[in-house]
Design a protein around this nucleic acid. Structure first.
Lengths: 151, 151
DNA sequence: ATTACTTGTAATTATGATAGTTACAATTAT
DNA sequence: ATAATTGTAACTATCATAATTACAAGTAAT
């Protein structure tokens, strides 16, 4: 099991729109960087749009950010692209036996525990903004350039 | 996306073996409580056995705990049943464009962030033992019995 | 030793999510 | 008009899950 790469792609898209702010970020352009089909990008873009993170209009080339990257956490992106439903990161078997003391309590007992774990995950994502991601990339580019010059 | 119910079933099994310690916990018996096929139970049991959590022997009916429930955390069960691979809770798109500043850095940038989030999740699971689960169930049973007497 | 029961596995199936793709209507700009 | 783009629908391939059937191998009782 793995959480859909839509999440990673969503982060990629937002960061790239920002770094390409003087250019036009069409779905074709973004797809070229992610290395996927433009339709995949448009689908994800639709979700980011519904969540109020980007501005896109039919017929008009190029997406724009609806907020500053410092105001978008990874949790916002994660929620936007619907990779995990509320309280449903962990699945629990559906029809345990009500005649059994364990069967009739298991769902109520582990449900709240699973929620705590899911919340811990989401809190960690809420502590990072897409601007942090952008900053780290800029830093990595600087380091790479330095290394190239010294070779 | 959801983490396989093998995890929840694993917790169910361990708790039930304990609460049924005076009886024989065959795969058929456990399947009856989980409400699934005995083969599903045996597969999960095999994983719990490999992780050193239960003792089972071919031909001999009934599984037993290999450790006290107080020594088994939910994280141990989660690792045992292989619902999520190490560092792979979140998937990242595979071949981003190395010609693009975002494409060539995205994996290295978000990889560690995703690991932090996954670790937060796992830490939360490590804070709870299967004994805590058992205790909560016993508590719920007591409350239910009280309510029935008062009706 | 035969019988009955159990565990351990392999193989098969149905289902659902993911990611990619083609096709095309609707929209906008030149 | 023409060209380019977004937004969707529809279809496909692939994979994981969970359930199921079938059966070999092990154990226990008679």
């Amino acid at each position: 099991m793995s959480i859909s790469s839509r999440f990673a792609v969503g982060i990629h898209i937002l960061t790239l729109i920002k770094m390409n702010k003087n250019g036009v970020s069409s779905s074709e352009f973004l797809a070229g960087s992610v290395n996927t089909n433009p339709v995949v990008i448009r689908k994800i873009m639709g979700m980011l749009k519904n969540a109020g993170l980007v501005k896109v209009r039919p017929g008009i080339a190029g997406a724009e950010l609806a907020k500053d990257l410092s105001e978008i956490t990874l949790l916002d992106v994660y929620k936007a692209v619907n990779v995990v439903q509320d309280k449903e990161l962990f699945s629990i078997h559906e029809n345990p036996n009500p005649q059994c003391p364990v069967g009739r309590n298991i769902q109520h007992t582990i449900g709240p525990i699973f929620e705590i774990a899911q919340t811990a995950l989401e809190k960690a994502l809420g502590n990072v903004t897409v601007e942090d991601v952008e900053r780290d990339m800029i830093e990595r580019e600087k380091l790479n350039n330095k290394m190239l010059r010294n070779e």
